[in-house]
Design a protein around this nucleic acid. Structure first.
Lengths: 221, 221
DNA sequence: GTCTCCAAAAATATCGATATTATTTGACTT
DNA sequence: AAGTCAAATAATATCGATATTTTTGGAGAC
């Protein structure tokens, strides 16, 4: 009934706000891996009460960005090369399944959505890096969401976030321009629009593996 | 101060207790799918304060057993045939990966663990159903945990739980004895001990598919 | 000099109460 | 009679304070 254009659904609760901010800080490395997260300290940083902070930390636990030690508070999830490689492996596995299913369900509405997301991503690529981050994720998720498998999509989204955390940690988020990412995205998009599952999944996985190798090499230093 | 009779290190926090109890109630269907979960009502049921209940619900959200509607509280996750089929599909995919990797890392220590878990499961099968539930999960997780992939293992564990929920909902947890489950487990165990990845994964997936078909048929009624 | 044990300090977990926000009820208008 | 708006009600979200628990720091013993 309400004519609410979903441009902005007021998601304003202290908890949600704290969640978003903390998540950002962990993903970008502002809160470094392994760091103890004391309620009192965060309460000051986020300018809110202890309950929202506590609940936000609880939510971040599900995203595997925060670890909870019973009776001993929270800490930012640690990182390791093993963990990174597991994330990469799982992404390749799960996103392949999702993309194949998405393509099997292909429709012109989905194709339109893809083209749009891709366009927005390219546009954002010329402007602020922060906009690009969101648009990039939106494009990748759009590739997968036509599978209509909510659990799978959720896992992919989680793993995507865990991965960009490593990107920030390794290269301060500037690892994009080192390679011709645009061409890779174009190839994936074209293959998806052709409904060519083989080609699309191959390009997608290559895309991830390449970034994976790059980050792995960065992690040595 | 208090003379606790429990031999083990008591994982006693109000939150953890509430979490365990609520989880149990949702898995067994005591709290039916889709039901609104009001803090006040649960506070009475669990005999604890509002904060632990709230936090337990938050934790259950990560297990996808509870849904949170921003500013509008919590409800038990709904069920659907679609959801069930997605769970089955993901389990087959992820557990195959995990089992193959486990077998690739096979060691005699792992084999010992497997044999033990299997034995315990068989023993528990003759006694209370509740004991069997835990032992059954422990056996299945032992098959996978030698992969040493914590994220993957976590997903498998989550999906396992979501699946047993459907089992309870469909058949009140008594669906075991309808088929010769023991033989199926024995086949999986033997193949794993032979380090025969092909055979082990085939039997494991057959095991799941068969239970899946059985439950699917039950869900019609 | 190192270890152990106890007291002090800090941090977390929990509670009770209040402020916000959604939902329902019921009267009033059309 | 149906729809709409506003007050009443119920539930959630948040706060401030207290009770546990863990960690720290130091004094005494070996």
């Amino acid at each position: 009934m309400d004519a609410m254009l979903d441009t902005e659904v007021k998601e304003t609760s202290a908890t949600h706000g704290a969640y978003r901010k903390l998540r950002e800080m962990i993903l970008t490395g502002e809160l470094p891996p392994g760091q103890k997260l004391k309620i009192e300290q965060l309460r000051g940083l986020l300018d809110t009460g202890a309950s929202p902070v506590r609940e936000a930390l609880s939510l971040l636990t599900s995203d595997m960005l925060v670890e909870r030690i019973d009776q001993r508070g929270f800490k930012a999830a640690p990182v390791s090369k093993c963990n990174f490689e597991e994330i990469l492996m799982l992404r390749c596995n799960l996103e392949e399944t999702a993309l194949r299913t998405s393509i099997a369900n292909a429709s012109s509405a989905w194709e339109d959505r893809l083209v749009l997301r891709h366009h927005h991503m390219k546009k954002a690529g010329q402007k602020g890096a922060h906009d690009f981050e969101d648009a990039h994720k939106a494009f990748h998720m759009a590739l997968l969401d036509n599978a209509r498998l909510p659990l799978l999509l959720r896992y992919c989204s989680q793993l995507y976030d865990l991965n960009i955390r490593y990107r920030y940690l390794a290269a301060g988020g500037s690892s994009y321009k080192k390679r011709d990412i645009n061409a890779e995205h174009q190839e994936i998009l074209d293959a998806a629009l052709d409904r060519d599952a083989e080609s699309a999944t191959r390009h997608l996985i290559d895309h991830y593996r390449r970034t994976g190798e790059y980050l792995s090499s960065q992690m040595e230093s």
